[in-house]
Design a protein around this nucleic acid. Structure first.
Lengths: 220, 220
DNA sequence: TCCGAAATCGAGGCATGCCTCATCTTCGTC
DNA sequence: GACGAAGATGAGGCATGCCTCGATTTCGGA
């Protein structure tokens, strides 16, 4: 996230300025083009040479991690808020709405939320935290009887995956279209809507493998 | 789809053999790697030189169109069968299940189903037909009262998009996982599950633009 | 103001994948 | 079985994007 030196040395003024410009450019470009956007474009937009980008962020994931820091915080904050909302159903909808909102309009976060990238330590830590909270949100809503009992926290991964494509398709055409689809999804999650499900849920390990697979495919 | 010459001339024996080998290789490679798979890999797998591939299929879409011919037929057949099934709800579920089944395990058809590519005439004609049938399937189920009345045929696009990512993520980990997610979706589509939707449906033109956008992004 | 360390620069080497075309091979007809 | 047309070949030119590294500039402390 910072430049990986054990470093006590503070950055020089110009370096600080340039680092900020790179983050700024990267935020915009990643959001518009996704995690695999050419790094040269980011350097250009920041008005700097490609070598400077590499000095500050030796790997793509260092840059991604730095850019995603705020979004990560927003993600966890949403989960922390949701887990205490009453009734628990409202907590669940609040959580899903916030996650989808973060995904919509930011292709990079969209990728981050539905995929997994080895060696992106900062991001993975946040994800772990968000998932643990997600599990509690699900269990709470089931306990109160509003969320159908036959789903598991792993099924939330389905929702994130599904929404990631919906958002990718529609954000530039109608920035609120995803709300309609999320509402349909929620209607299927209500205890009152439940019909037997044909196959068992994914196991946590399977979700992880699926996310890794998507990530590999994305940054092939 | 054929090689674009006005041509009455039939292919030479060796050319016929090679064309078949190319289609065979392309079927496998596209299914495994998606529509943007390197063409060199397809030629290599067919045991032919890259120039030969280009002689038979001057553009990527010529090859894609030829490979997707059978899947296209299966798609339309499913829709034609679904539109006469009683009760109409069963027709709808049959249709969605078949489409999702075709998407699962074939990354190329997955792309074809959720995106749009200009100048892929053969495919677009099939899509038009399938969409018209889809509209009738939806209206029939609404008329009998099983499908919630507040959705439109355009909302089916959401389902295809959503499923495309779910399938991309899970087909190699658990080839039937998508059935669980589709069942959840169907539970949200039942008239009995309906709660008011927050935003209006996409208009047909918007669906088209969204699909074009996905296609451009995919074959960037 | 001067100097060394820090930071910047960007050409260039590497890899991938597209597509072309001059040359060689094979088919099938007479 | 010979010949002309159809077909196959693959090196090579082009474009993109990654990443490095020696040369150059800038900063800021003494």
């Amino acid at each position: 996230m910072t430049t990986r030196k054990p470093s006590i040395a503070p950055l020089r003024k110009d370096a600080q300025r340039n680092r900020a410009a790179l983050l700024d450019a990267a935020r915009t470009v990643f959001a518009e083009e996704g995690l695999d956007a050419p790094l040269e474009g980011i350097a250009r937009r920041a008005g700097l040479a490609i070598g400077t980008l590499y000095r500050h962020f030796p790997t793509r994931m260092d840059l991604v991690g730095a850019v995603m820091a705020e979004k990560k915080r927003a993600w966890i904050k949403a989960a922390e808020a949701a887990v205490v909302i009453e009734p628990a159903w409202d907590g669940l909808t609040f959580f899903l709405e916030r996650v989808c909102e973060l995904q919509a309009g930011d292709l990079a976060f969209n990728d981050i939320a539905s995929m997994r990238f080895p060696y992106a330590a900062g991001i993975e830590a946040a994800r772990k935290r968000a998932y643990d909270l997600g599990r509690r949100i699900v269990e709470r809503a089931q306990a109160e009887g509003s969320l159908r009992p036959d789903i598991t926290a792993e099924d939330v991964a389905f929702i994130v995956w599904a929404h990631s494509r919906v958002s990718e398709a529609t954000y530039a055409i109608d920035p609120h279209a995803w709300r309609r689809y999320l509402a349909l999804t929620l209607d299927g999650l209500r205890a009152t809507a439940a019909h037997p499900l044909p196959v068992p849920p994914l196991r946590p390990r399977q979700v992880l493998r699926a996310q890794l697979r998507l990530g590999r495919r994305r940054l092939r």
